[in-house]
C-alpha cells in the first residue's frame, strides 16, 4: 500500500524584480568608483538572498543588472532569482549612453520572461547609478520608459556620484528618472560627494528598497514608497559626504 503524500507544496510567491542601471563609463575609474561597485554588488546579492528568504511566502526577489558606457549590456537577459544570481566584475571605459540603458530596461519590462510570474508581482524597483552627464537621446528614451506601466509603478532611486553644479544634464536626467509617477511619495535621489562612501550607499539603498518593497508593508500611516524614502533619507543622510538634494523638477536646486 502506498501512503498519499500529504506534504505541502510551497505557497505561491509573488515576485519583486529589482533592476540596477550601473554607469560603467570611463570616469567611474576615478577614485575607484567602479571598484566600489564591484565590491558592493556580490555583498548586495547576499543581503538580498537573506531578505528574500526571510519573506517566507510574500515574495521572491529577482535581480537584473544593466551596465552602460558606449552601449548598454545586460548581465542576464531577464531578471533572475537572487539565489541564482552571480555577479561578474565590470570595467569602466567609454561614454555615458544612458539612452541605451533605458531602452534595454524598457525591453526587459516588456518581456514575458521578466514580468509574467505565475503568482504575480509586487512593484519593481529600479536603481540608477551614474557619475556624469548622459549622452544625447536619454530624454526620448525616458519618455518611452515612462509610458510603461511597470516603470510607472516602480520604486525609483537615483544615486549621483560626484555631481557638480556644472553637471546640469546629469541632474536633469536623474531628477526626471526618479519622479515617482504611479508609485506615489517623493523622489529619492542621493548625491555622493565623498566617493569612498559609494560602497555603503549602494548597500544601504539596496537593502532598504528590497526589504520594504518586497514585503509591501506600510507602517505608521506611511506607504511603502514613503517608508523607503524615510529610511534612506534618515540613514543615508547620516553618512558624511552624502546629500539628499531637495530639487526642482528640472534638476535645479541641487545646490
Amino acid at each position: 500500500m502506498a501512503l498519499a503524500d500529504l506534504r505541502p507544496r510551497p505557497s505561491a510567491r509573488r515576485r519583486m524584480n529589482m533592476f540596477y542601471l550601473l554607469d560603467t563609463s570611463g570616469s567611474m575609474r576615478y577614485n575607484d568608483c567602479i571598484g566600489s561597485v564591484n565590491r558592493a554588488m556580490p555583498e548586495i546579492v547576499g543581503i538580498l538572498r537573506e531578505i528574500s528568504d526571510s519573506n517566507h511566502d510574500q515574495s521572491d526577489i529577482y535581480l537584473s543588472c544593466i551596465t552602460f558606457d558606449n552601449e548598454a549590456r545586460e548581465l542576464y537577459d531577464a531578471p533572475v532569482d537572487v539565489k541564482d544570481f552571480r555577479w561578474a566584475d565590470v570595467k569602466a571605459e567609454g561614454l555615458t549612453n544612458l539612452k541605451a540603458a533605458f531602452d534595454l530596461l524598457e525591453a526587459q519590462l516588456q518581456s514575458g520572461a521578466a514580468m509574467s510570474a505565475p503568482a504575480g508581482h509586487l512593484r519593481p524597483a529600479v536603481l540608477l547609478l551614474s557619475d556624469g552627464d548622459p549622452d544625447d537621446g536619454w530624454e526620448e528614451a525616458l519618455d518611452r520608459l515612462q509610458a510603461n506601466l511597470w516603470f510607472r509603478q516602480a520604486y525609483k532611486i537615483a544615486i549621483a556620484i560626484g555631481c557638480k553644479p556644472s553637471n546640469i544634464e546629469m541632474c536633469r536626467a536623474l531628477t526626471r528618472f526618479a519622479r515617482p509617477l504611479d508609485a506615489g511619495g517623493e523622489p529619492v535621489i542621493i548625491s555622493i560627494d565623498q566617493l569612498d562612501r559609494l560602497y555603503d550607499v549602494i548597500k544601504l539603498v539596496s537593502s532598504t528598497v528590497s526589504r520594504i518593497g518586497s514585503s509591501n508593508a506600510a507602517a505608521g500611516g506611511r506607504s511603502p514608497a514613503q517608508r523607503i524614502r524615510d529610511a534612506i533619507v534618515n540613514d543615508a543622510g547620516n553618512i558624511v559626504g552624502v546629500n539628499i538634494p531637495s530639487m526642482l523638477d528640472d534638476g535645479q536646486g541641487w545646490y
Binding site: 505557497s11 505561491a12 509573488r14 511566502d57 514580468m115 505565475p118 503568482a119 504575480g120 508581482h121 509586487l122 512593484r123 506601466l149 511597470w150 509603478q153 509591501n216 506600510a218 506607504s223 511603502p224
Partner: peptide, 19 residues
C-alpha cells in the same frame, strides 16, 4: 496557503499587487 489567495488575486488585473 492563504485563505484570500485565489483566481482573483492572481488575475491579470492584479498582476502587479500594489500596496
Amino acid at each position: 496557503d492563504h485563505p484570500f489567495e485565489g483566481r482573483s488575486t492572481t488575475s491579470d488585473e492584479n498582476r502587479c499587487l500594489t500596496p
